[in-house]
């Protein structure tokens, strides 16, 4: 199948899609894919968030798409610029897995669940409802959002294809 318009999101990256384009990110492990969709104007946005809070950044200038607390405001700004209204937005989340199990659970090892918590906290701050979620577990996911329908397709090695 050839997708006419496919926007790929890398790790610690974000973008918006309009005019029926698909927006996709591959290999989400402990990272979280946050997707936002405005059903009225059919504008979709996605961020591939790697870490929860930018306060842990040890770099002076950092990539704002990497942290949940900085990626969401930027994604909202980009969505607004594309014509979406915040009060119409609905959110879907995927990822935040714990790829490896260890007996001693340090904070780094729990990064998946912490990423999910941080994303939800940001969404509730902006009063954006979470309409669908496929998070946690111990497996990787590839996600694809259709900007014409808002349907989020989630693929994983173990569980095949799932729609939200």
């Amino acid at each position: 199948m050839i997708q006419q318009n496919l926007i790929k999101i890398g790790m610690a990256d974000l973008n918006v899609a309009t005019d029926g384009a698909m927006i996709k990110t591959t290999g989400l492990g402990s990272c979280v894919g946050v997707t936002l969709f405005d059903p009225k104007v059919k504008v979709a946005g996605m961020a591939h968030v790697m870490l929860p809070l930018s306060s842990i950044a040890r770099e002076s200038t950092f990539n704002i798409a990497k942290y949940a607390d900085t990626a969401l405001p930027e994604l909202l700004r980009r969505l607004a610029a594309a014509g979406a209204r915040r009060e119409r937005l609905i959110a879907k989340l995927a990822g935040g897995a714990q790829m490896f199990a260890f007996s001693g659970q340090s904070d780094t090892m729990r990064i998946g669940p912490r990423n999910v918590e941080a994303c939800k906290m940001m969404l509730s701050q902006y009063s954006i409802p979470v309409m669908g979620e496929d998070t946690g577990g111990n497996y990787g996911r590839t996600i694809e959002l259709d900007s014409s329908t808002g349907v989020l397709v989630i693929k994983s090695v173990q569980y095949g294809v799932k729609e939200l």
Binding site: G29, C31, A97, V157, Q158
Partner: peptide
């Protein structure tokens, strides 16, 4: 056993 991207990001 999973997608390389998901594993390596860890």
């Amino acid at each position: 056993i999973d997608m390389a991207g998901a594993i390596l990001s860890y």
